[in-house]
Design a binder for these strands. Structure first.
Length: 893
RNA sequence: GCGCGCUUAGCUCAGUGGUAGAGCGUCACAUUGACAUUGUGAAGGCCGGAGGUCCGAUCCCUCCAGCGCGCACCA
């Protein structure tokens, strides 16, 4: 007998652990023939940076339906779960978390940030896995993967190296989409264009006038361009014109290029190769005529020293000030105040992106795209809905090279090293020894923003000691032989902690001291600046009582070279100060004079990790540094289907690849699906999956996208708690067609909760009427008709599921169960079950009752099977009462 | 600008070359029954507009409108 009510809260966990204990989520344990056909779905790995939202519940439902359906049909069903480290996304979440705590990633060392993010994602991962279980996911947890599992990382890097060797990956200086808040480049897909109204400025360049929305980039102009066919400007092409600039007279060559639209503005454009993609391309076409990128905006979105009085201004401020200055000089002809245009912004934070020239890694897309196109055109991969093919084709046909370098910490490190002296690239160099340049931890003076120089009485702060201890722990794993340190207190303390932790020998070298800064020592930084100005940016100028930069450079370089020669085969830590580290690196890179001063400066307790390897073929240098960048997350998740199956040698790869279905949301068609197809074909020679099913985005009943700020998010776990997981799953399937958005409301879920109650009560009623003992029975004509109808319904539902028509299948079984089975068949059987003595059929009452029962039970059993993929918990619970023993999960469909 | 969708009952959506369906909502009635988390029934739609193909169009084609989305270097 069943309880009077279905209590999902008591049932769901119990049933899930029954399944887990059965082992049937693992295809190896299924009671099927050895040669049974596999059915494989790789789960789109949720980002390990938060909890599951309703969109995840959609994929869980759909993929679980497929997995359960095909498992019941006798296939070796594998649904392989995983989690994604989600590089940039996670780092953004992490940044926000830090911000709330009053901290910043940009003040942390790389290793420190990495460690915290690792712990953060590991925690989230566990939460997520349990949420997936709550939603009923019948995934094989024994095969679960994380994108940062060592073997996955290794294989991702192998792909990179292979592609590099095959000429599919190159490193180059290109204009990238730079987010000055997150300080990283983004791929073209991560750019969100928004419409904005800005003033359009008409600027006079000598005899010509041109229109621009970005007057502040004027300082980076290297030419003017017109359309070659533009009659108005024929006489200027190839000539140099003189113009009045804000910083004096300028000379620009006028070139002709097709990229210029004669109908826009005045038909003349300024060419700013460093800060505009089109202009960069124009320059590349006219390299021998005009000069190249002149960077006037830095990574913080501020104007550089090239811009005179505008130095340090943010782009937006600079724009207004430059316009004002131009007005004063009478070179601003007019302003169109409300010019509407598209502005590139960061899809995560909305910051206006700066086009900046950067050395980055790119994937050459055309050859990959071509094959990915053919695979779908030839029908090797089918799309559901079919129309999404068109979108896919359109993208592939217009594809541009993919920037895969990210200037963030959280991700898979690019396995490329650069010869420090000539920048030559080497993949996975043979490591002879390692040199770690370590800056001292935070000192008391650092904390107080004082110049410290060589001043005494300036030990590490409490925070500084903690920083150094963390660094020392990391260095311990590196088999350090020797620590060489500056003898200034803050370094001495740092070196002692490191030497103790690593057990390495410790020596001091006074040549590794910080620059002696004379009168500056002990002074507050802003106070000093007021008094002495920017004396620190002069290479050969002497601060009273101190050393010049030049003198520091010579002393440091001599020391470093000597230690290099003497300890070549040792793993060495050099503990020194900010400027010395910056200078050592700068010197190796052949940076000269004043430019050395602006070379990157390490943070407190930061480690610069240098590798000593075979001498470079190009310049003979043997010091290498690994590219600090990490891969775009999609570079690793794009390889997910074969990586999760243990490519290249894994048994699973042989058995389960290519997979059957890739089920995911349509908004990551380009980000993910297209790239999986490209990578799959490239590395394995086969498509990664045979079908792509794309579901829509979940919206509320007013068609609004769900977002936290709107307050209309439906928490799948929350509503499951209230109405039961089965009800939520049904609500997510019904009316959910491929490629279209899904509308969900609490009322809809409630409706399916009612359905669950119906299922429960129907089962309860039937079990209540179970005859005691075995009674021979013959089905009546009515029974036969009903059973025949059942068979027909089942065939239809099977077909629907085979065709990915989840909504039709779910609605059909819902309808049949409630309005045919419950309302008609059971109602019709009631008189027979009551053993009416005046039964005209002539059968004995008991026999008649048994026949009626038998039919109802048969229909119930079949209905439970058909409902199971959609509503796994309640059906299994009833099944256990009806047929104790083998679980419903492997009942034959 | 190019491309892809959508437009069907009050709401949310299915659907088919033979002049329409579901859920929710509304209304009426019933019901101490396995189930009020129920049942029976009703009202409600020139299937966005205009043309075309066809014996016949909500469905196929063309154009138009509104909405949504994607792509795009227009300074």
């Amino acid at each position: 007998m069943l309880e009077p009510r279905y209590e999902h809260k008591e049932v769901e966990d119990k049933i899930y652990s029954l399944w887990e204990k059965s082992g049937y989520f693992n295809p190896d344990n299924l009671p099927v023939a050895k040669n049974a056909k596999p059915f494989t779905i790789i789960m789109p790995p949720p980002n390990a940076n938060g909890s599951l939202h309703i969109g995840h519940a959609v994929f869980v439902t759909l993929q679980d339906i497929l997995t359960r359906f095909w498992r019941m049909r006798g296939r070796k069903a594998l649904w392989l779960p995983g989690a994604d480290h989600a590089g940039f996304e996670t780092q953004v979440v992490f940044d926000k978390k830090l911000e709330k705590e009053g901290r910043s990633r940009f003040k942390m060392t790389r290793d420190e940030a990495w460690k915290e993010m690792w712990e953060f994602t590991q925690k989230n991962k566990v939460v997520m896995e349990n949420q997936l279980r709550k939603l009923g996911a019948s995934a094989d947890w024994s095969r679960e993967k994380f994108t940062l599992d060592p073997r996955i990382v290794e294989e991702v890097q192998n792909t990179f190296v292979k592609m590099y060797e095959d000429g599919l990956i190159y490193r180059g200086m290109r204009i990238v989409n730079w987010c000055s808040k997150h300080k990283t480049a983004l791929s073209d897909l991560e750019v969100k264009y928004i419409e904005r109204k800005d003033p359009l400025y008409y600027i006079k360049y000598g005899p010509l006038t041109l229109a621009t929305v970005r007057p502040e980039t004027k300082f980076g102009d290297t030419a003017l361009a017109v359309n070659p066919k533009d009659k108005r400007y024929q006489k200027y092409i190839g000539k140099e014109i003189e113009a009045i600039g804000l910083l004096g007279k300028l000379k620009f060559k006028v070139i002709a290029d097709d990229a210029v639209d004669p109908k826009f503005g005045t038909g003349v454009v300024k060419v700013t190769p460093a800060h505009d993609t089109t202009d960069f391309e124009i320059w590349q076409r006219h390299k021998d005529e005009i000069s190249g990128p002149k960077t006037i905006i830095d990574e913080n979105g501020r104007l550089t020293r090239e811009t005179g009085t505008f130095t340090g201004l943010k782009v937006a401020e600079a724009r207004e000030k430059v316009a004002e200055a131009m007005k004063e000089k009478d070179i601003l002809e007019k302003i169109e105040p409300e010019y509407v245009h598209q502005v590139a912004t960061c899809y995560k934070c909305g910051t206006t992106l700066e086009p900046l020239p950067k050395q980055q890694w790119f994937v050459k897309m055309e050859p990959l795209a071509k094959k990915a196109l053919t695979a779908v055109q030839s029908g090797k991969i089918k799309f559901y809905p079919d129309r999404s093919k068109k979108v896919y084709f359109h993208w592939l046909k217009n594809i541009r090279d993919w920037n895969i370098s990210r200037q963030i910490v959280w991700g898979i490190r690019i396995p490329a090293w650069f010869c420090l002296s000539c920048d030559e690239t080497k993949m996975n160099p043979k490591i002879k020894s390692r040199w770690f340049l370590v800056r001292h931890g935070e000192s008391e003076f650092n904390k107080e923003h004082r110049h410290q120089g060589q001043m005494k009485g300036n030990p590490l702060s409490a925070e500084g000691i903690v920083q150094v201890q963390k660094t020392a722990k990391l260095l311990k794993e590196q088999n350090i032989d020797l620590v060489i340190s500056s003898d200034i207190e803050r370094c001495e303390m740092t070196a002692k902690i490191i030497a103790e932790e690593t057990g390495a020998k410790l020596v001091f070298d006074e040549r590794l001291r910080e620059q002696s800064t004379g009168v500056a020592e002990g002074m507050m930084k802003d106070e000093f600046e007021k008094k002495y100005g920017d004396i620190f940016s002069k290479y050969e100028e002497r601060i009273p009582g101190g050393e010049t930069w030049k003198e520091l450079e010579e002393r440091i370089w001599k020391s470093f070279n000597e230690h290099q020669k003497n300890h070549k085969h040792m793993n060495v830590v050099i503990v020194t100060h900010g400027s010395p580290i910056s200078y050592i690196l700068g010197k190796i890179k052949n940076i000269k004079g004043e430019d050395l001063i602006t070379a990157p400066f390490p943070k407190n307790a930061e480690v610069v990790d240098l590798v000593i390897s075979e001498p470079c073929k190009k310049c003979g240098g043997d010091i290498y540094e690994q590219d600090p960048d990490v891969f775009d997350t999609w570079f690793s998740s794009g390889q997910w289907p074969y990586l999760t199956l243990g490519y290249p040698k894994g048994k699973d790869f042989k058995n389960f690849y290519p997979t059957d279905v890739m089920e995911t949301a349509y908004d990551i068609l380009f980000f993910w699906v297209a790239r999986m197809i490209m990578f799959g074909i490239y590395r394995t020679g086969h498509v990664p999956f045979k079908s792509v099913y794309l579901h829509g985005l979940v919206r509320d009943k007013d068609r609004q996208k769900m977002s936290k700020s709107k307050g209309n998010v439906v928490d799948p776990l929350g509503v499951s708690e209230i109405y039961g997981t089965d009800a939520v799953r049904m609500a997510l399937v019904a009316g959910n067609t491929a490629g279209n958005d899904i509308i969900i409301s609490e009322e809809k879920i409630k409706g399916y909760r009612n359905f669950a109650t119906k299922i429960w009560n129907v089962s309860r009623f039937i079990l209540m009427n179970k005859p005691s003992g075995i009674i021979k029975s013959t089905p009546s004509a009515e029974d036969k008709k009903n059973l025949a109808q059942l068979k027909k319904i089942k065939t239809e539902i099977t077909k629907h599921l085979e065709r990915f028509e989840f909504h039709l299948a779910s609605e059909k079984i819902y309808h049949y169960f409630w309005h045919t089975f419950a309302d008609k068949i059971i109602e019709g059987a009631k008189p027979r079950l009551r053993s009416n003595p005046s039964n005209p059929l002539g059968a004995s009452n008991e026999e008649e009752k048994a026949a009626a029962y038998q039919t109802l039970e048969t229909i119930l059993i079949e209905c439970l099977k058909m409902l199971h993929p959609f509503m796994p918990f309640i059906t299994e619970e009833i099944w256990q009462k009806l047929k104790p023993g083998e679980p419903l999960i492997i009942a034959e469909w």
